[in-house]
Design a protein around this nucleic acid. Sequence first.
RNA 1: GGGUGGAUACCCAAGCGGCCAAAGGGGCCAGACUGUAAAUCUGGUGGCUAUGCCUUCGCAGGUUCGAAUCCUGCUCCACCCA
Length: 406
Amino acid sequence: MRDVESQLAYLSRGVDRITPEAEFRQKLERSVKSGTPLRVKYGIDPTGIDVHLGHTVPLRKLRQFQDLGHKAIIIIGNYTALVGDPSGRDETRARLTKDQVEANARDYLEQVGRLIDLDRAEVHRNGDWFARFSFLDVLELTRKMTLGQISAREDFAQRIAAEKPVYLHECLYPLMQGWDSVEIKADVELGGTEQLFSLLVARDLQESQGQPPQVAMTMPILVGTDGTRRMGKSLGNYIGVADAADAMFGKIMSIPDEPMRQYFTLLTEIPIPEVDRLLDPALNPRDAKEALGRAIVAQYHGAEAAETAARAFRKRAAGEDPDVVPEVAVSAARLDAAQSLPAFLLLKELGLEPSASSARRLIEQGGFNIGPDREVVTDPKAPITIHDGLIVRAGKRRIARVRLTP
RNA sequence: GGGUGGAUACCCAAGCGGCCAAAGGGGCCAGACUGUAAAUCUGGUGGCUAUGCCUUCGCAGGUUCGAAUCCUGCUCCACCCA
């Protein structure tokens, strides 16, 4: 096991704060001296299915702990998911069944397995202990916190000020999460900066149970592809770890220039001096973004796939067709006597546009061209003579090759 | 239990009898430009083989020549008071 200083240096990258910092050092010292790995906890609720790069920030940190020989402990919040979180506002979230939750959990683990060595990790479902909780146990738990403490929490305070609802069960979340730490005797818990409150609640609960309190290690919230709001599924600005290499690379290239440093720091191992060099204002930011894309895609799809994705992207940026153009079957019966089809119908037929109306719009705006010479047609009703192998482009990214069938 | 406010297109949000397929913003799409699917600028953004027709403003009825706008009932949501 590496010495304390070296571990501290390795683990501090991309960390917002460690609370309390002195205790963390002590824990590391004790761990090194006794040869006992730290128990490092990270929890997730299996309500959705897409693990995205935002989730990977703490997960990568967990992996780093693992690489240093510490124990990674993943908590699957299956019990909270089973109860159903109604804070989803407009749509009352369909109450998940046990089977769904379990399926989600397995799905989660499969995705998490891309980052964490699950063979060396402990995985717990918090239903294992919460399902046994009696109402009295719940009451006992709620005695540990006051309304004042809860409402002092910034996000709650904001919502109260904005006259937005705060549900009671939401108040229990930090307590439940904290109790997880008691059950697994956590030394360190990882989370985003917004988790700090919950991570600290665990300390009180642990102490009340005669355990040494855990240390909270928080990391910045990753911004999404829009460059402003946090990465999230509901905001539609996320990059999933299960995304195909091309899509992942493309999404990374679509982020604004500003958050690049954050992405480099939180999502890659590229040394900071090297990052500084890449982000030199004198250089083309595109090249930095490309390096970023390659580094991230390589983590999930391998270096070769990353290189291929980067090449394909460059090709597209240069206005060239991709190597592989998807073929779409068109029935010859759809054509008129002159073997042609009005342009807008062709687009719809090929599935490049969802409706005739939107196809007309695209064509009128000059986003439609065909054949090797990229002949632009701007009249939606213009008859297009169809032949097998005809290449049709809609905008800069959508393309199809006609496959005539009888 | 009582009171108040609200439900509008993917999201936020105007409109309060005809000029409303419905302002504005976001998102998204297209075009231009470009050192990038960044930034910036311009246009578009319900459907329909379409200069017109159909459907849409929580749901169901009603008033009216005409309703997103008025009336009645219902459903749902939030906040305040208890």
